[in-house]
Design a protein around this nucleic acid. Structure first.
Lengths: 206, 206, 206, 206
DNA sequence: CATGAATGAGGGTTCATTCAT
DNA sequence: AATGAATGAACCCTCATTCAT
C-alpha cells in the first residue's frame, strides 16, 4: 500500500505560522465545497476565500485533491473524536439509553456539516489511501463497540464482532440517509427513535 | 410539476433503428460512467464507446445530464421490476424466509452494477424530477411492505408504516454499503445473514 | 388559402413543381430568419418549417448562403417592383406630394418585413454578387429619379444625377433607421414628415 | 438599469501591465473582427492575434460579447471626443462652413475603421446596455446641435430639436453609407459636398 | 427524388496548475 | 514566501453538410 506520492504534503508544518496558513486554507475549502460542491469549488475560489493568492495555496497543497484528502481526514478525526468523547464521558447503563446516546452523537456529527460531508463522501474522488483510513477508523470503532457488547449482560448475540459491525454500519448509513434527505424535524426524531428500537431489539435478542 | 425542458429527449424512436441507437448510447454510457465516474465520463468518450460520432449522440440526447437521467430511470425501473417479480413469484411463509428473499433480491439488483449505481446515486447531479421519481418508487415499496407487515401475525410493531420505512431503507443502505465495500463473498454472506437476523428480531418484537 | 383539390391538375410539369418547392423553402427561410436571426436560423429549422427533410432542402439549394442570396434577390426585386408600381400608377403633380408618395412607399416596403431586412442586410454575409445586384438596382432607381428631377420645373439642382443619388440614398437610409429603431408611431410620422420637408427644400433650391 | 452581469470585466487593471494587456486584446479584436466579421472572429483567433493564450483572454473579458461591448464603447467615445474636439475648437461662422466641418469630422471618424464599424453596428448582437449608451450619446449630440440651430439667425426651422435629430441622423447614416460603399475619393467629395448642400438648404428654409 | 441519421470540425468557455517577478 | 498573470488541454455542445437507404 504505497502512499500516493501526489498527495504528500509539500511542506511539513515546521512553523506554527505555516500550520495556521494550512488551516486557513482548509477552513476556506470546507466553506467553499459546502457551498459550491466539488467541481464548482475551484482552487481559485478557495484561495480567494482564504484571503490569499492561488500561488500561495499551491505552496501548502500540491493539488486540489490533496485538500480534499486533508478535509476528509479531519472529518474522520472529528467524528472519531466526538464519539470517543461520548464514550469517555461515560455511557448510561441501559442498552436503550446507550444506543440513544450513540445515535444522537452521530446525528450531531452530521448536522450542520452534512453539505460538506456530502461533497467529501459523494462527489469528490476518494483515493485508496483515504478509503483505507476510513475503513481503519470504522474498524477501530467496531472493535470498541464489540467490546461493549461483549461486556453487556443485556446483549444476546452470537458474534459480538459481527453485531458491532452491523450496528456501526447501520447507524452511520441510516443517519446519513435521514439527514441528507431533507426531512422535517419531527420525521428525523421518529426515524432515529425507530432506529434505536430496531437496534435494541436486535441486540437484546428474543 | 412541469418536465424539465433541458432533459427532454430529442428524438422519438420513429424507426426501430433509432431505438436501438438510443440503447447503444445508454449501454456505452453505463460502461463509461462505471469506469470513469461522472465528470471523467465525457460525452465524447461515451460517443466513442458507442461507436458513433459526438454529433450523433446529441441527436438522441440533448445533453449529458439527460443521459444520466435516463440511466437512473432505467436503474430504478430495473430494481422495481426485480422486486415486484420476487413478490409476484409468491413469498415464502416464514418471516425470516421472507426477509431473506427480499435481501437477496436487493443484493442481486446491486451486484454487477454497483459502480454505476455509485455514479448515479452519489456523483451525478440529480434533477428534482428524478429525485421525485425515486422517492415515489421508494414510497410505493414502503406501502407494499407495510401491508405485508400489517398482515403478518408474527410481526409486532406499533407503526407498520414506520417499520416498513426503516426496513426498506436499512436493506437498501446496508446492501449498498456491503456491496460497495468489495468484501469477500464469505463476508457478504455473513453480513446479509446478520442483517436478516436484525430485521427479524426487530419485527418479531420481544 | 388552400387551393381547391379538384381543380388542381393531377400532375404538374416537373419544372413548376420544383419551382413551388423552392418557393416553399424560401418562404420558410424568410419566416425562420426573421424570427431567429441569421446564425440561429439553421438549415434544419428551415427544412422543418418548410415541411420537408433537410436532405430535400439541399437538393434545391447548395448551401445556406445560397438561400440568403435568393432571399436577398427577391427582397430587392420586391422593393423595386413596389416602387415601380407606384411610379407607374402615376405620380401626383406637386414636388412635396411626389416625395411623400416615395417615402411612404419605402416605409411600406420596410414595414412588416424589417426583421428579415435586418437579417439580410446586417447579419448575413453578403457575397460580392449580391452587392453588385443591389448596386445595380439602386443605380437604376437613381436613373429614374434623375429623369424625374430633370423634367420637374420646380426642381432647382445643378446635377440631377447627383441629387437623385442623394435623395435615393437618404430616403433608403433614414427610413431604415427610423423603422429599425422601435419608434412610437407618432415619432415615425414626425420623422418622415420632416424627411420629406428636408428633401423638398433641398430640391426646390433657394 | 442594472449593469448586465455577464458583461462585467473580470479584472480591474490593478497593475499597469494589466491595463496594457486589456488594450492588446481590444486591438487584436478590432483587427480580427474587421477582417473576419463577427461570427468568424473567434475568441481563439483574437487571443492568437493578441499573442496570448485563450485562457489569458478570458482573464480579462468574461466572454466574447464583453469584448464587443468594450469595443463599441470605445468607438462611441472616440466619435464623441472627435466631434466635441471640433466643436470646442470653435466653429466657423457661416452655416455652410459649419455643416462642412461637422460632415468632415464624421467622415474622419469613419475612415479607416469602417469595417470594424460595420461589425460593431450591424453584425454583433448589442446588449440593451450599449444600445442605451449609444442612444444617450446621440441624444446629447442632438441637444448640442439643436442649441446651435436655435442660436443661428440663418436657420429657419419650426422645430430645432426635430431638425437637429434629422441632421444628426442623416449625416451619420449617409456618411456611413458613402464610406462603406468604397467610392473613389472624388465620388466621396462630391457626395459629401452635396450632402452639405442638402442640409444647408433644409436649414436655411425658403 | 426524398429521407433523416450520421458526421466532426469548430465554437465558447473553464480551471487546475505553473512560474516569472 | 507571496503573488497573480499566464497557460492550454479538455469540456460540452452546435450545425452545415453528406450519403446510404
Amino acid at each position: 500500500m504505497a502512499v500516493d506520492q501526489r498527495l504528500r504534503p509539500r511542506k511539513r508544518p515546521q512553523q506554527s505560522r505555516s500550520h495556521e496558513t494550512r488551516q486557513r486554507i482548509l477552513d476556506a475549502a470546507a466553506r467553499i465545497f459546502a457551498e459550491h460542491g466539488y467541481s464548482a469549488g475551484t482552487t481559485n475560489r478557495i484561495a480567494a476565500a482564504a484571503g490569499m493568492s492561488i500561488g500561495s495555496l499551491y505552496q501548502y497543497f500540491p493539488n486540489k485533491d490533496a485538500i480534499i484528502v486533508e478535509l476528509t481526514r479531519a472529518h474522520i478525526a472529528d467524528g472519531t473524536a466526538q464519539l470517543h468523547a461520548v464514550l469517555a464521558a461515560g455511557l448510561p447503563t441501559g442498552l436503550t439509553e446507550r444506543l440513544r446516546v450513540v445515535v444522537d452523537a452521530t446525528v450531531a456529527a452530521h448536522t450542520g456539516g452534512h453539505r460538506l460531508h456530502q461533497v467529501l463522501f459523494e462527489q469528490a474522488p476518494r483515493p485508496a489511501e483515504v478509503v483505507d483510513e476510513l475503513r481503519a477508523a470504522e474498524d477501530a470503532l467496531v472493535e470498541v463497540v464489540a467490546a461493549l457488547l461483549a461486556d453487556d449482560p443485556a446483549v444476546a448475540v452470537d458474534d459480538p464482532h459481527l453485531a458491532a459491525r452491523i450496528v456501526v454500519t447501520t447507524v452511520e448509513s441510516l443517519v446519513h440517509r435521514f439527514v441528507t434527505r431533507d426531512p422535517a424535524d419531527g420525521d428525523l426524531a421518529a426515524l432515529t427513535g425507530e432506529l434505536v428500537r430496531m437496534l435494541e431489539r436486535y441486540l437484546a435478542g428474543t
